[in-house]
Amino acid sequence: MRNPLLLILIAMLLLTGCDNMRPEPVESNLTNLSVEALILRLDNALQRLEYQQGEVGANLGRVGMRMELRTVQSSLEQLGYFNGPRLGILDDKTVDAIDRYLENRTSLLQESLSQ
């Protein structure tokens, strides 16, 4: 009790060792979008981000722009190109996923329209 900071640090360490109790994801309308809708979302978000060759022209210091990047990550995840945390950070994994998506975008769209 004489050193509350020490107690907090010990509690933090103990808590980080808790069993993995990650809950089941909640269903939302955004998780059941069609491929066309996802492509549209991605195109709009990438346009707003001014994405070009692994870089964005928009200021990612803005919350709105990080939210756009998170939308990109989420859409890519639903299309099967991304499986990292959706934090709106442009890391190598995200750039790789975007580039792979852009390579396959036309065929992906044709495929979904033909179904």
């Binding site: 808590l15 808790c18 945390p85 934090l87 950070i89 890391d91 190598d92 994994k93």
Partner: peptide
Amino acid sequence: VGWAFGEIFRGAFTGEGVVGG
């Protein structure tokens, strides 16, 4: 609740394992 606080502390210092997280 314990797990949730664990996530909070873990996330604060590991950034979910993302560069810049």
